[in-house]
Design a protein around this nucleic acid. Structure first.
Lengths: 161, 161
DNA sequence: GGATATTAGTTTCATTTGCAACTAAAAGCA
DNA sequence: TGCTTTTAGTTGCAAATGAAACTAATATCC
Protein backbone atom coordinates (compact mmCIF):
# COMPACT_ATOMS: atom_id res chain seq x y z
CA UNK A 1 0.00 0.00 0.00
CA UNK A 2 2.81 2.36 0.85
CA UNK A 3 5.82 2.20 -1.43
CA UNK A 4 9.09 3.80 -0.54
CA UNK A 5 10.81 4.81 -3.74
CA UNK A 6 13.90 6.82 -3.15
CA UNK A 7 12.34 8.55 -0.13
CA UNK A 8 14.51 9.33 2.87
CA UNK A 9 12.82 8.42 6.10
CA UNK A 10 14.04 9.82 9.38
CA UNK A 11 16.95 7.87 10.87
CA UNK A 12 16.23 5.48 13.68
CA UNK A 13 12.90 4.17 14.69
CA UNK A 14 10.15 4.90 12.21
CA UNK A 15 6.45 4.35 12.27
CA UNK A 16 4.49 3.04 9.36
CA UNK A 17 0.98 4.31 9.69
CA UNK A 18 -0.37 1.34 7.76
CA UNK A 19 0.83 -1.04 10.40
CA UNK A 20 -0.12 1.08 13.35
CA UNK A 21 -3.25 -0.27 14.97
CA UNK A 22 -4.71 3.00 16.24
CA UNK A 23 -4.45 4.40 12.75
CA UNK A 24 -6.10 1.42 11.13
CA UNK A 25 -8.82 1.49 13.71
CA UNK A 26 -9.39 5.14 13.02
CA UNK A 27 -9.67 4.87 9.26
CA UNK A 28 -11.87 1.80 9.55
CA UNK A 29 -14.16 3.54 11.97
CA UNK A 30 -14.37 6.52 9.66
CA UNK A 31 -15.34 4.39 6.73
CA UNK A 32 -17.87 2.37 8.71
CA UNK A 33 -19.29 5.51 10.17
CA UNK A 34 -19.71 6.94 6.71
CA UNK A 35 -21.50 3.82 5.58
CA UNK A 36 -23.96 4.15 8.44
CA UNK A 37 -24.33 7.89 8.13
CA UNK A 38 -25.64 7.32 4.64
CA UNK A 39 -28.70 5.85 6.33
CA UNK A 40 -29.67 8.86 8.44
CA UNK A 41 -27.85 11.83 7.01
CA UNK A 42 -29.12 12.48 3.51
CA UNK A 43 -32.68 11.35 3.97
CA UNK A 44 -33.37 12.89 7.35
CA UNK A 45 -30.68 15.51 7.66
CA UNK A 46 -29.43 14.16 10.96
CA UNK A 47 -25.94 14.30 12.32
CA UNK A 48 -24.22 11.46 14.08
CA UNK A 49 -24.90 12.87 17.52
CA UNK A 50 -28.52 13.52 16.75
CA UNK A 51 -29.00 9.99 15.61
CA UNK A 52 -27.33 8.61 18.69
CA UNK A 53 -29.61 10.52 20.97
CA UNK A 54 -32.62 9.33 19.02
CA UNK A 55 -31.36 5.79 19.18
CA UNK A 56 -31.06 6.03 22.95
CA UNK A 57 -34.56 7.39 23.26
CA UNK A 58 -36.04 4.92 20.82
CA UNK A 59 -34.59 2.14 22.86
CA UNK A 60 -35.88 3.42 26.19
CA UNK A 61 -38.01 6.47 26.75
CA UNK A 62 -38.19 8.70 28.57
CA UNK A 63 -34.65 9.53 29.54
CA UNK A 64 -32.99 12.48 31.18
CA UNK A 65 -30.17 14.15 29.30
CA UNK A 66 -27.83 12.56 31.73
CA UNK A 67 -29.11 9.10 31.06
CA UNK A 68 -28.65 9.79 27.38
CA UNK A 69 -25.05 10.69 28.09
CA UNK A 70 -24.41 7.42 29.80
CA UNK A 71 -26.11 5.35 27.16
CA UNK A 72 -24.48 7.01 24.21
CA UNK A 73 -21.05 7.76 25.59
CA UNK A 74 -21.50 11.38 24.66
CA UNK A 75 -20.73 14.23 26.96
CA UNK A 76 -23.38 16.54 28.24
CA UNK A 77 -22.53 19.44 25.98
CA UNK A 78 -22.91 17.30 22.90
CA UNK A 79 -26.15 15.90 24.20
CA UNK A 80 -27.48 19.32 25.05
CA UNK A 81 -26.75 20.54 21.56
CA UNK A 82 -28.14 17.48 19.86
CA UNK A 83 -31.34 17.91 21.85
CA UNK A 84 -31.56 21.52 20.80
CA UNK A 85 -31.31 20.51 17.15
CA UNK A 86 -33.81 17.70 17.57
CA UNK A 87 -36.31 19.92 19.35
CA UNK A 88 -35.90 22.45 16.63
CA UNK A 89 -36.77 19.80 14.09
CA UNK A 90 -39.68 18.64 16.16
CA UNK A 91 -38.31 15.16 16.69
CA UNK A 92 -37.86 15.29 20.42
CA UNK A 93 -39.63 17.05 23.22
CA UNK A 94 -38.22 17.98 26.53
CA UNK A 95 -39.95 18.94 29.71
CA UNK A 96 -38.99 19.31 33.31
CA UNK A 97 -38.98 16.39 35.66
CA UNK A 98 -41.22 17.37 38.54
CA UNK A 99 -39.44 15.08 40.99
CA UNK A 100 -36.18 16.87 40.36
CA UNK A 101 -36.60 20.08 38.49
CA UNK A 102 -33.03 20.21 37.25
CA UNK A 103 -33.62 17.13 35.23
CA UNK A 104 -35.29 16.87 31.82
CA UNK A 105 -37.70 14.29 30.59
CA UNK A 106 -36.92 13.56 26.99
CA UNK A 107 -39.14 11.76 24.52
CA UNK A 108 -39.32 11.23 20.82
CA UNK A 109 -42.30 12.97 19.28
CA UNK A 110 -44.58 11.07 16.93
CA UNK A 111 -42.53 12.32 14.06
CA UNK A 112 -39.37 11.37 15.89
CA UNK A 113 -40.63 7.86 16.38
CA UNK A 114 -41.59 7.59 12.76
CA UNK A 115 -38.10 8.52 11.71
CA UNK A 116 -36.63 6.17 14.25
CA UNK A 117 -38.72 3.35 12.85
CA UNK A 118 -37.59 4.26 9.39
CA UNK A 119 -33.92 4.31 10.24
CA UNK A 120 -33.57 1.25 12.42
CA UNK A 121 -34.13 -1.44 9.81
CA UNK A 122 -31.92 0.37 7.34
CA UNK A 123 -29.15 0.76 9.89
CA UNK A 124 -29.38 -2.88 10.81
CA UNK A 125 -29.29 -3.92 7.19
CA UNK A 126 -26.24 -1.80 6.68
CA UNK A 127 -24.57 -3.36 9.68
CA UNK A 128 -25.31 -6.82 8.34
CA UNK A 129 -23.94 -5.81 5.02
CA UNK A 130 -20.73 -4.53 6.56
CA UNK A 131 -20.32 -7.59 8.71
CA UNK A 132 -20.90 -9.89 5.78
CA UNK A 133 -17.18 -9.52 5.18
CA UNK A 134 -16.75 -11.71 8.25
CA UNK A 135 -18.02 -15.20 9.02
CA UNK A 136 -20.43 -15.68 11.91
CA UNK A 137 -17.62 -16.89 14.13
CA UNK A 138 -15.41 -14.02 13.14
CA UNK A 139 -18.13 -11.53 13.90
CA UNK A 140 -18.42 -12.89 17.39
CA UNK A 141 -14.69 -12.89 17.81
CA UNK A 142 -14.43 -9.38 16.52
CA UNK A 143 -17.01 -8.23 19.02
CA UNK A 144 -15.03 -9.74 21.85
CA UNK A 145 -11.71 -8.35 20.75
CA UNK A 146 -13.00 -4.89 20.27
CA UNK A 147 -14.58 -4.94 23.70
CA UNK A 148 -11.38 -6.00 25.34
CA UNK A 149 -9.54 -3.28 23.50
CA UNK A 150 -12.16 -0.77 24.54
CA UNK A 151 -11.85 -1.65 28.17
CA UNK A 152 -8.09 -1.56 28.01
CA UNK A 153 -8.07 1.86 26.42
CA UNK A 154 -10.56 3.09 28.94
CA UNK A 155 -8.42 1.80 31.74
CA UNK A 156 -5.30 3.46 30.39
CA UNK A 157 -7.11 6.75 29.96
CA UNK A 158 -8.58 6.70 33.42
CA UNK A 159 -5.43 5.71 35.19
CA UNK A 160 -3.65 8.83 34.05
CA UNK A 161 -6.21 11.45 35.07
CA UNK B 1 -24.69 -2.15 30.64
CA UNK B 2 -28.04 -0.75 29.60
CA UNK B 3 -30.95 -1.56 31.91
CA UNK B 4 -34.52 -1.03 30.91
CA UNK B 5 -36.53 -0.21 34.01
CA UNK B 6 -40.03 0.83 33.26
CA UNK B 7 -38.94 2.63 30.09
CA UNK B 8 -41.18 2.50 27.05
CA UNK B 9 -39.21 1.82 23.92
CA UNK B 10 -40.67 2.54 20.53
CA UNK B 11 -42.92 -0.25 19.25
CA UNK B 12 -41.53 -2.59 16.65
CA UNK B 13 -37.93 -3.04 15.75
CA UNK B 14 -35.54 -1.37 18.16
CA UNK B 15 -31.84 -0.89 18.15
CA UNK B 16 -29.63 -1.31 21.15
CA UNK B 17 -26.60 0.84 20.69
CA UNK B 18 -24.50 -1.43 22.88
CA UNK B 19 -24.94 -4.29 20.47
CA UNK B 20 -24.55 -2.27 17.33
CA UNK B 21 -21.14 -2.81 15.81
CA UNK B 22 -20.65 0.62 14.23
CA UNK B 23 -21.34 2.19 17.59
CA UNK B 24 -18.95 -0.04 19.45
CA UNK B 25 -16.33 0.56 16.85
CA UNK B 26 -16.81 4.27 17.20
CA UNK B 27 -16.52 4.43 20.96
CA UNK B 28 -13.54 2.11 20.92
CA UNK B 29 -11.80 4.18 18.33
CA UNK B 30 -12.46 7.31 20.35
CA UNK B 31 -10.97 5.81 23.44
CA UNK B 32 -7.94 4.41 21.62
CA UNK B 33 -7.44 7.67 19.86
CA UNK B 34 -7.47 9.48 23.16
CA UNK B 35 -4.89 7.10 24.54
CA UNK B 36 -2.60 7.85 21.64
CA UNK B 37 -3.27 11.55 21.59
CA UNK B 38 -1.86 11.70 25.08
CA UNK B 39 1.50 10.98 23.49
CA UNK B 40 1.64 13.92 21.09
CA UNK B 41 -0.93 16.40 22.27
CA UNK B 42 0.07 17.69 25.67
CA UNK B 43 3.80 17.56 25.25
CA UNK B 44 4.08 18.91 21.73
CA UNK B 45 0.78 20.66 21.25
CA UNK B 46 -0.01 18.72 18.10
CA UNK B 47 -3.41 17.77 16.81
CA UNK B 48 -4.25 14.42 15.35
CA UNK B 49 -4.00 15.62 11.79
CA UNK B 50 -0.69 17.32 12.43
CA UNK B 51 0.73 14.17 13.86
CA UNK B 52 -0.48 12.11 10.95
CA UNK B 53 1.19 14.37 8.47
CA UNK B 54 4.40 14.25 10.45
CA UNK B 55 4.16 10.49 10.62
CA UNK B 56 3.81 10.28 6.87
CA UNK B 57 6.82 12.53 6.35
CA UNK B 58 8.90 10.79 8.96
CA UNK B 59 8.26 7.55 7.19
CA UNK B 60 9.16 8.83 3.75
CA UNK B 61 10.40 12.27 2.84
CA UNK B 62 9.95 14.31 0.83
CA UNK B 63 6.31 14.03 -0.12
CA UNK B 64 3.90 16.24 -1.97
CA UNK B 65 0.72 17.24 -0.19
CA UNK B 66 -1.09 14.85 -2.40
CA UNK B 67 1.10 11.94 -1.47
CA UNK B 68 0.47 12.82 2.15
CA UNK B 69 -3.25 12.62 1.46
CA UNK B 70 -2.95 9.16 0.05
CA UNK B 71 -0.74 7.89 2.81
CA UNK B 72 -2.76 9.28 5.66
CA UNK B 73 -6.25 8.92 4.30
CA UNK B 74 -6.84 12.59 4.91
CA UNK B 75 -8.38 14.91 2.41
CA UNK B 76 -6.49 17.75 0.83
CA UNK B 77 -8.09 20.50 2.88
CA UNK B 78 -7.13 18.84 6.12
CA UNK B 79 -3.63 18.26 4.86
CA UNK B 80 -3.28 21.81 3.67
CA UNK B 81 -4.30 23.12 7.04
CA UNK B 82 -2.14 20.71 8.98
CA UNK B 83 0.80 21.81 6.88
CA UNK B 84 0.02 25.44 7.59
CA UNK B 85 0.08 24.75 11.32
CA UNK B 86 3.23 22.70 11.10
CA UNK B 87 5.04 25.34 9.05
CA UNK B 88 3.95 27.92 11.55
CA UNK B 89 5.51 25.84 14.31
CA UNK B 90 8.63 25.34 12.29
CA UNK B 91 8.26 21.59 12.10
CA UNK B 92 7.81 21.25 8.37
CA UNK B 93 8.99 23.16 5.39
CA UNK B 94 7.39 23.36 2.04
CA UNK B 95 8.76 24.46 -1.26
CA UNK B 96 7.75 24.23 -4.85
CA UNK B 97 8.53 21.21 -6.94
CA UNK B 98 10.41 22.51 -9.95
CA UNK B 99 9.34 19.63 -12.15
CA UNK B 100 5.71 20.48 -11.60
CA UNK B 101 5.21 23.85 -10.02
CA UNK B 102 1.75 23.09 -8.71
CA UNK B 103 3.20 20.49 -6.45
CA UNK B 104 4.88 21.01 -3.07
CA UNK B 105 7.90 19.33 -1.67
CA UNK B 106 7.37 18.74 2.02
CA UNK B 107 10.01 17.86 4.57
CA UNK B 108 10.32 17.74 8.32
CA UNK B 109 12.70 20.37 9.63
CA UNK B 110 15.41 19.39 12.09
CA UNK B 111 13.08 20.30 14.87
CA UNK B 112 10.32 18.34 13.22
CA UNK B 113 12.50 15.29 13.01
CA UNK B 114 13.48 15.63 16.63
CA UNK B 115 9.86 15.65 17.67
CA UNK B 116 9.11 12.76 15.38
CA UNK B 117 11.88 10.77 17.00
CA UNK B 118 10.53 11.66 20.39
CA UNK B 119 6.99 10.61 19.61
CA UNK B 120 7.50 7.38 17.73
CA UNK B 121 8.76 5.20 20.56
CA UNK B 122 6.13 6.55 22.92
CA UNK B 123 3.37 5.92 20.38
CA UNK B 124 4.60 2.42 19.80
CA UNK B 125 4.79 1.74 23.52
CA UNK B 126 1.27 2.95 23.88
CA UNK B 127 0.11 0.72 21.06
CA UNK B 128 1.77 -2.26 22.70
CA UNK B 129 0.14 -1.37 25.95
CA UNK B 130 -3.29 -1.20 24.34
CA UNK B 131 -2.80 -4.43 22.49
CA UNK B 132 -1.64 -6.20 25.62
CA UNK B 133 -5.32 -6.82 26.24
CA UNK B 134 -5.08 -9.33 23.38
CA UNK B 135 -2.88 -12.37 22.93
CA UNK B 136 -0.40 -12.43 20.06
CA UNK B 137 -2.72 -14.57 18.01
CA UNK B 138 -5.66 -12.36 18.75
CA UNK B 139 -3.74 -9.29 17.73
CA UNK B 140 -3.03 -10.83 14.37
CA UNK B 141 -6.60 -11.92 14.02
CA UNK B 142 -7.85 -8.50 14.98
CA UNK B 143 -5.67 -6.92 12.35
CA UNK B 144 -7.10 -9.18 9.70
CA UNK B 145 -10.68 -8.68 10.71
CA UNK B 146 -10.42 -4.96 10.84
CA UNK B 147 -8.85 -4.89 7.42
CA UNK B 148 -11.62 -6.95 5.91
CA UNK B 149 -14.15 -4.71 7.52
CA UNK B 150 -12.35 -1.67 6.22
CA UNK B 151 -12.34 -2.92 2.68
CA UNK B 152 -15.96 -3.88 2.89
CA UNK B 153 -16.98 -0.46 4.16
CA UNK B 154 -14.90 1.18 1.50
CA UNK B 155 -16.54 -0.91 -1.14
CA UNK B 156 -20.01 -0.07 0.09
CA UNK B 157 -19.20 3.61 0.20
CA UNK B 158 -17.72 3.68 -3.25
CA UNK B 159 -20.47 1.71 -4.87
CA UNK B 160 -23.02 4.33 -4.02
CA UNK B 161 -21.16 7.40 -5.29
C1' DG C 1 -32.27 26.45 59.08
C1' DG C 2 -28.63 28.27 56.46
C1' DA C 3 -24.08 28.00 54.24
C1' DT C 4 -21.53 25.04 51.08
C1' DA C 5 -20.96 21.57 47.77
C1' DT C 6 -22.91 18.70 43.89
C1' DT C 7 -25.46 17.78 40.05
C1' DA C 8 -28.20 18.80 35.64
C1' DG C 9 -28.08 21.16 31.86
C1' DT C 10 -27.01 25.46 28.99
C1' DT C 11 -24.16 29.05 27.11
C1' DT C 12 -20.10 31.53 25.55
C1' DC C 13 -15.90 31.99 23.10
C1' DA C 14 -12.11 30.52 20.55
C1' DT C 15 -10.96 26.75 17.35
C1' DT C 16 -11.70 23.35 14.16
C1' DT C 17 -14.35 21.32 10.48
C1' DG C 18 -16.58 20.68 5.94
C1' DC C 19 -18.00 22.30 1.65
C1' DA C 20 -17.67 24.87 -2.25
C1' DA C 21 -15.44 28.17 -4.70
C1' DC C 22 -11.08 29.72 -6.17
C1' DT C 23 -6.05 30.23 -8.22
C1' DA C 24 -2.32 28.47 -10.64
C1' DA C 25 -0.01 25.16 -13.36
C1' DA C 26 -0.03 21.21 -16.48
C1' DA C 27 -2.32 18.04 -19.78
C1' DG C 28 -5.27 16.97 -23.51
C1' DC C 29 -7.03 18.07 -27.78
C1' DA C 30 -8.32 20.22 -32.23
C1' DT D 1 -0.87 27.05 -31.22
C1' DG D 2 -4.87 28.32 -28.55
C1' DC D 3 -8.91 26.47 -25.91
C1' DT D 4 -10.78 23.38 -22.55
C1' DT D 5 -10.17 20.12 -18.84
C1' DT D 6 -7.81 18.19 -15.07
C1' DT D 7 -4.85 18.37 -11.11
C1' DA D 8 -2.50 20.57 -6.89
C1' DG D 9 -3.26 23.16 -3.32
C1' DT D 10 -5.48 27.24 -0.74
C1' DT D 11 -9.18 30.09 1.08
C1' DG D 12 -13.76 31.84 2.82
C1' DC D 13 -17.72 31.05 5.20
C1' DA D 14 -21.06 28.82 7.89
C1' DA D 15 -21.66 25.20 11.02
C1' DA D 16 -19.73 22.02 14.57
C1' DT D 17 -16.64 21.30 18.53
C1' DG D 18 -14.20 21.59 23.11
C1' DA D 19 -13.18 23.77 27.28
C1' DA D 20 -14.52 26.54 30.83
C1' DA D 21 -17.78 29.39 32.91
C1' DC D 22 -22.40 29.84 34.20
C1' DT D 23 -27.47 29.08 36.11
C1' DA D 24 -30.66 26.68 38.66
C1' DA D 25 -32.03 23.09 41.70
C1' DT D 26 -30.97 19.56 45.07
C1' DA D 27 -28.10 17.35 48.58
C1' DT D 28 -24.89 17.63 52.47
C1' DC D 29 -23.17 19.18 56.68
C1' DC D 30 -22.91 22.09 60.87
Amino acid sequence: MTERNGKQPVDGERLELDGFMPYRLSVTQQEVSRAIAAVYAKKHGLMRHDWRVMAALGDAQPLSANEVCRRTNMDKVQVSRAIARLKQKGLVNQHQDMEDRRRSVLRLTGQGEAIYRDIVPAARARETDLLSALSEAEQKQFGQLIDRLYRRAQYLNKSRE
